[in-house]
Write a protein that binds this DNA or RNA. Structure first.
Lengths: 142, 142
DNA sequence: CTGACTGCAAAAGGTTTGCAAAAAG
DNA sequence: CTTTTTGCAAACCTTTTGCAGTCAG
Protein backbone atom coordinates (compact mmCIF):
# COMPACT_ATOMS: atom_id res chain seq x y z
CA UNK A 1 0.00 0.00 0.00
CA UNK A 2 2.67 2.56 0.94
CA UNK A 3 4.23 1.73 -2.39
CA UNK A 4 5.17 4.45 -4.75
CA UNK A 5 4.14 7.60 -2.97
CA UNK A 6 7.67 8.79 -3.47
CA UNK A 7 7.47 8.17 -7.19
CA UNK A 8 4.28 10.19 -7.34
CA UNK A 9 5.98 13.12 -5.68
CA UNK A 10 9.08 12.83 -7.81
CA UNK A 11 7.02 12.65 -10.98
CA UNK A 12 5.52 15.97 -10.10
CA UNK A 13 8.93 17.49 -9.55
CA UNK A 14 8.80 17.43 -5.76
CA UNK A 15 11.55 16.19 -3.50
CA UNK A 16 11.31 13.34 -1.05
CA UNK A 17 11.72 14.43 2.52
CA UNK A 18 11.20 12.76 5.88
CA UNK A 19 8.59 15.38 6.72
CA UNK A 20 6.51 14.47 3.69
CA UNK A 21 6.74 10.80 4.48
CA UNK A 22 5.74 11.37 8.08
CA UNK A 23 2.77 13.56 7.24
CA UNK A 24 1.51 11.06 4.71
CA UNK A 25 1.86 8.24 7.23
CA UNK A 26 0.07 10.30 9.84
CA UNK A 27 -2.83 10.90 7.49
CA UNK A 28 -3.06 7.19 6.82
CA UNK A 29 -2.88 6.29 10.49
CA UNK A 30 -5.39 8.83 11.74
CA UNK A 31 -7.97 8.51 9.01
CA UNK A 32 -9.64 11.84 9.68
CA UNK A 33 -7.35 14.52 10.98
CA UNK A 34 -6.92 18.25 11.23
CA UNK A 35 -3.53 19.86 10.58
CA UNK A 36 -3.07 20.27 14.31
CA UNK A 37 -3.77 16.60 14.97
CA UNK A 38 -1.38 15.62 12.22
CA UNK A 39 1.27 17.77 13.83
CA UNK A 40 0.86 15.92 17.10
CA UNK A 41 1.09 12.58 15.36
CA UNK A 42 4.16 13.56 13.38
CA UNK A 43 5.84 14.99 16.44
CA UNK A 44 5.70 11.63 18.15
CA UNK A 45 8.45 10.66 15.74
CA UNK A 46 10.05 13.95 14.85
CA UNK A 47 9.55 16.56 17.52
CA UNK A 48 11.12 19.39 15.57
CA UNK A 49 8.58 19.46 12.75
CA UNK A 50 6.74 22.72 12.48
CA UNK A 51 3.04 23.42 11.92
CA UNK A 52 3.74 25.47 8.84
CA UNK A 53 5.51 22.48 7.37
CA UNK A 54 2.37 20.45 7.93
CA UNK A 55 0.34 22.99 6.00
CA UNK A 56 2.83 23.24 3.17
CA UNK A 57 3.16 19.49 3.01
CA UNK A 58 -0.57 18.88 2.93
CA UNK A 59 -0.85 21.33 0.09
CA UNK A 60 1.75 19.39 -1.87
CA UNK A 61 0.30 15.98 -1.04
CA UNK A 62 -3.14 17.12 -2.06
CA UNK A 63 -1.83 18.61 -5.26
CA UNK A 64 -0.33 15.30 -6.35
CA UNK A 65 -3.42 13.42 -5.25
CA UNK A 66 -2.10 11.56 -2.24
CA UNK A 67 -4.57 13.08 0.20
CA UNK A 68 -7.88 14.95 0.14
CA UNK A 69 -9.57 17.19 2.60
CA UNK A 70 -13.13 18.01 3.55
CA UNK A 71 -14.75 20.74 5.59
CA UNK A 72 -16.66 19.11 8.33
CA UNK A 73 -17.62 21.66 10.91
CA UNK A 74 -16.94 25.35 11.18
CA UNK A 75 -13.40 24.81 12.24
CA UNK A 76 -10.35 23.23 10.73
CA UNK A 77 -10.62 20.99 7.67
CA UNK A 78 -9.86 17.30 8.01
CA UNK A 79 -7.52 15.40 5.77
CA UNK A 80 -8.04 11.88 4.49
CA UNK A 81 -5.98 9.26 2.86
CA UNK A 82 -6.93 8.57 -0.73
CA UNK A 83 -6.34 4.89 0.04
CA UNK A 84 -9.33 4.99 2.33
CA UNK A 85 -12.67 4.10 0.84
CA UNK A 86 -14.42 7.15 -0.50
CA UNK A 87 -17.11 8.40 1.84
CA UNK A 88 -19.45 11.29 2.45
CA UNK A 89 -19.70 13.12 5.74
CA UNK A 90 -23.03 13.65 7.45
CA UNK A 91 -22.60 16.40 9.99
CA UNK A 92 -25.18 16.87 12.71
CA UNK A 93 -25.61 20.57 13.36
CA UNK A 94 -27.22 19.84 16.69
CA UNK A 95 -24.84 17.44 18.40
CA UNK A 96 -21.86 17.92 16.09
CA UNK A 97 -21.51 14.20 15.50
CA UNK A 98 -20.07 13.17 12.17
CA UNK A 99 -21.04 9.96 10.49
CA UNK A 100 -19.77 8.63 7.21
CA UNK A 101 -21.65 6.82 4.52
CA UNK A 102 -20.23 4.98 1.56
CA UNK A 103 -19.77 7.08 -1.49
CA UNK A 104 -21.79 4.66 -3.60
CA UNK A 105 -24.90 5.71 -1.74
CA UNK A 106 -24.64 8.98 -3.60
CA UNK A 107 -24.06 7.35 -6.95
CA UNK A 108 -27.36 8.52 -8.40
CA UNK A 109 -26.93 12.01 -7.07
CA UNK A 110 -23.44 12.30 -8.49
CA UNK A 111 -24.67 10.96 -11.81
CA UNK A 112 -27.48 13.47 -11.84
CA UNK A 113 -25.05 16.35 -11.30
CA UNK A 114 -22.88 15.09 -14.12
CA UNK A 115 -25.80 14.71 -16.54
CA UNK A 116 -27.61 17.86 -15.62
CA UNK A 117 -24.89 20.45 -15.19
CA UNK A 118 -21.67 18.65 -16.11
CA UNK A 119 -20.37 18.89 -12.57
CA UNK A 120 -17.79 16.29 -11.50
CA UNK A 121 -18.25 15.68 -7.80
CA UNK A 122 -15.36 15.07 -5.46
CA UNK A 123 -17.26 12.64 -3.29
CA UNK A 124 -14.78 12.61 -0.44
CA UNK A 125 -15.22 16.33 -0.13
CA UNK A 126 -18.97 16.54 0.29
CA UNK A 127 -20.42 17.67 3.58
CA UNK A 128 -24.07 17.14 4.23
CA UNK A 129 -25.34 19.15 7.17
CA UNK A 130 -28.53 18.45 9.02
CA UNK A 131 -29.71 16.48 12.01
CA UNK A 132 -28.73 12.95 12.88
CA UNK A 133 -31.31 10.32 13.76
CA UNK A 134 -30.91 10.68 17.52
CA UNK A 135 -31.24 14.45 17.47
CA UNK A 136 -34.31 14.21 15.27
CA UNK A 137 -35.79 11.76 17.75
CA UNK A 138 -34.87 13.88 20.74
CA UNK A 139 -36.49 16.92 19.18
CA UNK A 140 -39.69 15.06 18.39
CA UNK A 141 -40.27 14.67 22.11
CA UNK A 142 -40.42 18.40 22.81
CA UNK B 1 -42.66 39.22 2.97
CA UNK B 2 -40.91 41.20 5.70
CA UNK B 3 -43.96 40.52 7.78
CA UNK B 4 -43.60 39.16 11.21
CA UNK B 5 -39.89 38.72 11.65
CA UNK B 6 -40.23 40.78 14.77
CA UNK B 7 -42.92 38.49 16.10
CA UNK B 8 -40.65 35.52 15.51
CA UNK B 9 -37.90 37.12 17.52
CA UNK B 10 -40.23 38.22 20.28
CA UNK B 11 -41.77 34.77 20.52
CA UNK B 12 -38.35 33.39 21.22
CA UNK B 13 -37.75 35.92 23.95
CA UNK B 14 -35.45 38.17 21.95
CA UNK B 15 -35.74 41.92 21.70
CA UNK B 16 -36.31 43.92 18.57
CA UNK B 17 -33.40 46.18 17.72
CA UNK B 18 -32.47 48.26 14.71
CA UNK B 19 -29.32 46.19 14.33
CA UNK B 20 -31.32 42.99 14.02
CA UNK B 21 -33.63 44.52 11.50
CA UNK B 22 -30.76 45.87 9.45
CA UNK B 23 -28.86 42.59 9.41
CA UNK B 24 -31.94 40.68 8.36
CA UNK B 25 -32.62 43.17 5.59
CA UNK B 26 -29.03 42.96 4.45
CA UNK B 27 -29.24 39.18 4.25
CA UNK B 28 -32.37 39.46 2.15
CA UNK B 29 -30.88 42.07 -0.13
CA UNK B 30 -27.55 40.37 -0.70
CA UNK B 31 -28.77 36.82 -1.12
CA UNK B 32 -25.42 35.19 -0.40
CA UNK B 33 -23.20 37.08 1.97
CA UNK B 34 -20.36 36.70 4.41
CA UNK B 35 -20.43 38.46 7.78
CA UNK B 36 -17.98 41.02 6.43
CA UNK B 37 -20.18 41.76 3.42
CA UNK B 38 -23.19 42.07 5.66
CA UNK B 39 -21.30 44.55 7.79
CA UNK B 40 -20.61 46.70 4.76
CA UNK B 41 -24.22 46.60 3.72
CA UNK B 42 -25.48 47.44 7.19
CA UNK B 43 -22.99 50.25 7.56
CA UNK B 44 -24.44 52.00 4.55
CA UNK B 45 -27.34 52.81 6.83
CA UNK B 46 -25.83 52.66 10.27
CA UNK B 47 -22.12 53.30 10.26
CA UNK B 48 -21.58 52.60 13.92
CA UNK B 49 -22.57 48.95 13.83
CA UNK B 50 -19.81 46.61 14.88
CA UNK B 51 -18.68 43.35 13.33
CA UNK B 52 -19.18 41.47 16.55
CA UNK B 53 -22.78 42.59 16.51
CA UNK B 54 -23.13 41.07 13.06
CA UNK B 55 -21.87 37.77 14.35
CA UNK B 56 -24.05 37.81 17.43
CA UNK B 57 -27.06 38.87 15.43
CA UNK B 58 -26.60 36.17 12.82
CA UNK B 59 -26.42 33.62 15.58
CA UNK B 60 -29.74 34.81 16.94
CA UNK B 61 -31.41 35.06 13.55
CA UNK B 62 -30.28 31.58 12.68
CA UNK B 63 -31.45 30.23 16.00
CA UNK B 64 -35.00 31.47 15.41
CA UNK B 65 -34.93 30.27 11.83
CA UNK B 66 -34.85 33.58 9.96
CA UNK B 67 -31.57 32.86 8.19
CA UNK B 68 -29.34 29.90 7.38
CA UNK B 69 -25.72 29.62 6.53
CA UNK B 70 -23.57 27.36 4.40
CA UNK B 71 -19.86 26.76 4.09
CA UNK B 72 -18.92 27.44 0.56
CA UNK B 73 -15.19 27.76 0.25
CA UNK B 74 -12.42 27.50 2.77
CA UNK B 75 -13.10 30.94 4.07
CA UNK B 76 -16.02 32.66 5.67
CA UNK B 77 -19.49 31.10 5.63
CA UNK B 78 -22.27 32.75 3.68
CA UNK B 79 -25.68 33.55 5.04
CA UNK B 80 -28.97 33.20 3.20
CA UNK B 81 -32.48 34.34 3.65
CA UNK B 82 -34.90 31.55 4.45
CA UNK B 83 -37.33 33.27 2.12
CA UNK B 84 -35.10 32.40 -0.75
CA UNK B 85 -35.76 29.18 -2.55
CA UNK B 86 -33.81 26.32 -1.05
CA UNK B 87 -30.75 25.45 -3.05
CA UNK B 88 -27.57 23.44 -2.98
CA UNK B 89 -24.15 24.90 -3.65
CA UNK B 90 -21.83 23.35 -6.18
CA UNK B 91 -18.35 24.63 -5.48
CA UNK B 92 -15.64 24.28 -8.10
CA UNK B 93 -12.35 23.55 -6.38
CA UNK B 94 -10.45 24.58 -9.48
CA UNK B 95 -11.89 27.97 -10.41
CA UNK B 96 -13.75 28.65 -7.17
CA UNK B 97 -16.99 29.35 -8.99
CA UNK B 98 -20.15 28.58 -7.08
CA UNK B 99 -23.32 27.51 -8.82
CA UNK B 100 -26.62 26.74 -7.22
CA UNK B 101 -29.09 24.04 -8.11
CA UNK B 102 -32.63 23.69 -6.92
CA UNK B 103 -33.01 21.68 -3.80
CA UNK B 104 -35.53 19.38 -5.44
CA UNK B 105 -32.77 17.97 -7.60
CA UNK B 106 -31.49 16.29 -4.49
CA UNK B 107 -34.87 15.00 -3.45
CA UNK B 108 -33.95 11.37 -3.99
CA UNK B 109 -30.66 11.74 -2.23
CA UNK B 110 -32.26 13.41 0.76
CA UNK B 111 -34.92 10.73 0.84
CA UNK B 112 -32.27 8.04 0.74
CA UNK B 113 -30.46 9.55 3.73
CA UNK B 114 -33.70 9.71 5.65
CA UNK B 115 -34.60 6.10 4.90
CA UNK B 116 -31.19 4.62 5.30
CA UNK B 117 -29.76 6.38 8.35
CA UNK B 118 -32.55 8.59 9.62
CA UNK B 119 -30.61 11.72 8.76
CA UNK B 120 -32.63 14.89 8.15
CA UNK B 121 -30.73 16.98 5.65
CA UNK B 122 -30.62 20.75 5.82
CA UNK B 123 -30.58 21.23 2.07
CA UNK B 124 -29.56 24.86 2.11
CA UNK B 125 -26.47 23.89 4.02
CA UNK B 126 -25.04 21.31 1.69
CA UNK B 127 -21.84 22.02 -0.18
CA UNK B 128 -20.81 19.78 -3.00
CA UNK B 129 -17.20 20.21 -3.99
CA UNK B 130 -15.72 19.12 -7.27
CA UNK B 131 -15.09 20.53 -10.70
CA UNK B 132 -17.49 22.57 -12.75
CA UNK B 133 -18.21 21.76 -16.39
CA UNK B 134 -15.82 24.33 -17.82
CA UNK B 135 -12.91 23.24 -15.64
CA UNK B 136 -13.55 19.60 -16.51
CA UNK B 137 -13.50 20.58 -20.18
CA UNK B 138 -10.39 22.67 -19.85
CA UNK B 139 -8.58 19.85 -18.10
CA UNK B 140 -9.57 17.33 -20.75
CA UNK B 141 -7.49 19.27 -23.26
CA UNK B 142 -4.22 18.77 -21.39
C1' DC C 1 -36.15 50.18 36.17
C1' DT C 2 -33.90 45.81 34.83
C1' DG C 3 -32.06 42.65 31.94
C1' DA C 4 -30.86 42.16 27.15
C1' DC C 5 -28.03 44.10 23.70
C1' DT C 6 -24.24 46.79 21.71
C1' DG C 7 -19.58 48.80 20.85
C1' DC C 8 -14.96 48.48 21.76
C1' DA C 9 -10.72 46.41 22.52
C1' DA C 10 -8.34 42.46 23.37
C1' DA C 11 -7.84 37.48 22.84
C1' DA C 12 -8.23 33.37 20.46
C1' DG C 13 -8.19 30.13 16.72
C1' DG C 14 -6.40 28.79 12.20
C1' DT C 15 -3.50 29.70 8.19
C1' DT C 16 0.05 32.19 5.56
C1' DT C 17 4.47 34.44 4.67
C1' DG C 18 9.46 36.25 4.67
C1' DC C 19 13.77 34.88 5.54
C1' DA C 20 18.02 32.50 6.61
C1' DA C 21 19.70 27.91 7.49
C1' DA C 22 19.53 22.99 6.18
C1' DA C 23 18.85 19.23 3.08
C1' DA C 24 17.76 16.87 -1.47
C1' DG C 25 19.22 15.61 -5.92
C1' DC D 1 26.57 23.08 -6.27
C1' DT D 2 21.82 24.59 -7.11
C1' DT D 3 17.26 24.62 -5.87
C1' DT D 4 13.83 23.11 -2.95
C1' DT D 5 12.32 22.64 1.56
C1' DT D 6 12.24 23.58 6.41
C1' DG D 7 11.96 26.00 11.06
C1' DC D 8 11.03 30.05 13.24
C1' DA D 9 8.76 34.25 14.14
C1' DA D 10 5.74 37.47 12.79
C1' DA D 11 1.74 38.77 10.17
C1' DC D 12 -3.02 37.93 8.87
C1' DC D 13 -7.83 36.94 8.83
C1' DT D 14 -11.91 35.50 10.91
C1' DT D 15 -14.46 34.74 14.99
C1' DT D 16 -15.13 35.01 20.04
C1' DT D 17 -15.13 37.09 24.57
C1' DG D 18 -15.11 40.41 28.72
C1' DC D 19 -16.73 44.48 30.13
C1' DA D 20 -19.00 48.83 30.78
C1' DG D 21 -22.35 51.67 28.87
C1' DT D 22 -26.95 51.84 26.36
C1' DC D 23 -31.41 50.69 25.05
C1' DA D 24 -35.81 47.88 24.64
C1' DG D 25 -39.69 46.46 27.06
Amino acid sequence: MARDWDAVLRDHGFRITPQRQLVLEAVNVLGHATPEELLNEVQKTAGAVNLSTIYRTLEVLEQVGLVTHAHIGHGAPTYHSVEEEAHIHLVCDTCQAVQSIHAESAELFVQMLRDKVGFETDVAHVSVHGQCASCVGRQALL
